[in-house]
Design a protein around this nucleic acid. Sequence first.
DNA 1: GGTACGAATGATAATCATTATCGTTATCAT
DNA 2: ATGATAACGATAATGATTATCATTCGTACC
Lengths: 127, 127
Amino acid sequence: MLRLTQHRQSILDLINASNRHWDADEVSRALSDAGQAVGIATVYRGLAALEAAGLLDSIQLADKKRYERADKAHHDHMICTECGHIEEFIHETIEALQLSAAKERGFVLTGHQLTMFGRCKSCDKQE
Amino acid sequence: MLRLTQHRQSILDLINASNRHWDADEVSRALSDAGQAVGIATVYRGLAALEAAGLLDSIQLADKKRYERADKAHHDHMICTECGHIEEFIHETIEALQLSAAKERGFVLTGHQLTMFGRCKSCDKQE
DNA sequence: GGTACGAATGATAATCATTATCGTTATCAT
DNA sequence: ATGATAACGATAATGATTATCATTCGTACC
């Protein structure tokens, strides 16, 4: 069974105390900066274990995986391709329509990921 | 400007003649099998060039990028996590709701990717 | 408190898709 | 045909992630 070790607690605390999306490398560096460095492999394993336990959520981007707090309702993401800002949004109707679209095709939905790309308000102004 | 060379024409023909989603390695092996092997770097460059020219579409999965014919309307994907089957679906309302959700937040949408995961009809039966 | 066993750790090698490099070759406009 | 430039191929490099494996930790049980 999963052991919530000190290392994993540190990872969890770090992410829970923030409102951002972290990749493994950022977590590793933040822990180092806080004087509690852990091996990068441990960070990867810790993140995966915490996600498997439902204590973290994640989004899979093209190049890397980013983790975030799990104590929020399900939501999707809108990513600014200029500045990297990630905005979260919830859209009940889109969720419901996905479910019915799946059902129509005999699919049993286990998950989905909706990611929108574009320019955020401030980046769009500066153009 | 893009040159539609023999190599790229082969890649395009291969994908256009099919109804599946190809990754670079699969394309490379299929061309080899057909007796017209090309370097793997050429495959990658060809796929990227053809996509940039609007002659191919792609979906970015967690591990790799897969290409498909571009002569279809925009659509999203439903992927069976058991057998890998990829089903395409179009949902105008979801599309429209995404646009308005972005607009509400001041985002200028340039693209999106909606991927649903689950078990397809036949895999679900066998369970 | 001591012991045993499975889980976690850390350093590092390995993997794997993709991109960069660079000398050579093909393509196309003139 | 020629010159400019895009494409090619072999291969090295990259970068995120996973595997390996010896060591250490955590915890249940005596």
